[in-house]
Design a binder for these strands. Structure first.
Length: 260
DNA sequence: ATGCCGTACCGTGTACGA
């Protein structure tokens, strides 16, 4: 089974690339983030024609996550237990389901904006509650996948000095990430060792062309998931403006292979 | 230091993203 995660930065403007990606890599389960669409706005026709089912959550033009699976989507859960809200509003940042016997959770961790910002505290609280909620799945085949908006290590950032006063590299964010990573291991990193391995490159300043990016998209697997992983790669070509049709997302997909 | 690009929306500006 082949599982992937990808922040698509609007599934409506990216659907052609999503379908091409699924075909190019023969993907069974794709978790997407930043769909920026409500469920009835999702362009599912081409996905269904290719044998995929979709489970999604989206409340407005922001955030939005979904699962696209051709090995079944059962026991769909929107959000997680005690998921924090922002400005008294629940946000579309988590959806999970059992696909081919594996619980896959598509996650879009809050950005944080700036250290000290209410959004930053929201981010830390969100990760802490996710850690608690995920405990119930740590002894089953489970993958927590998505855009974590955290660089766990300095080598995950093209210029840590530039981020000294920014989010993504602060000790508190890393602690919150590693509290989860203690039970759900990063299964892609051993197959994609750094430095200079990234999953996100900002659109401007030719960041992709100069490979100045961040590694912030991760597949974290429970032990029962991790022991089945046989390989992983970042589909860097998908981020290349020179390849494919239409503009790329600012994130590249992370793909993980699982033994049956 | 800078959101310099891209996306979405009640749009010709604003909000958001790392």
């Amino acid at each position: 089974m082949r599982i992937a995660t990808w922040n698509v930065n609007s599934i409506r403007s990216r659907i052609d690339r999503v379908e091409a990606f699924l075909e190019r890599h023969d993907i069974d389960v794709l978790a997407v983030q930043e769909t920026k669409a409500m469920p009835d706005q999702l362009p599912t026709m081409g996905l269904e024609a290719r044998g995929y089912e979709v489970a999604a959550v989206g409340y407005d033009q922001w955030n939005g996550v979904a699962l696209i699976s051709r090995v079944g989507i059962e026991e769909v859960l929107v959000g997680f237990e005690a998921m924090p809200v922002f400005k008294e509003q629940a946000e579309a940042r988590a959806v999970s389901a059992v696909c081919g016997g594996v619980r896959v959770m598509s996650l879009y961790v809050p950005n944080g904006r700036k250290p000290g910002d209410p959004h930053y505290h929201y981010k830390l609280e969100w990760l802490a509650r996710l850690r608690d909620a995920a405990q119930r799945w740590k002894d089953t085949p489970t993958a927590l996948v998505g855009d974590w908006n955290v660089c766990p290590f300095d080598e995950d950032c093209f210029d840590p000095a530039q981020f000294r006063k920014a989010t993504h590299l602060t000790p508190a964010e890393r602690e919150a990430f590693f509290a989860i990573e203690a039970d759900f291991r990063d299964v892609a990193r051993p197959f994609t060792p750094g430095p200079d391995v990234y999953t996100y490159w900002d659109y401007y300043r030719q960041r992709f062309e100069r490979n100045r990016g961040l590694r912030i998209d991760f597949v974290l697997g429970s032990p029962a998931f991790a022991e089945r992983v046989t390989g992983a790669f970042v589909d860097t070509d998908e981020r290349d403006p020179a390849q494919g049709t239409g503009a790329p997302s600012d994130h590249a997909p992370v793909v993980v292979d699982l033994a049956d």
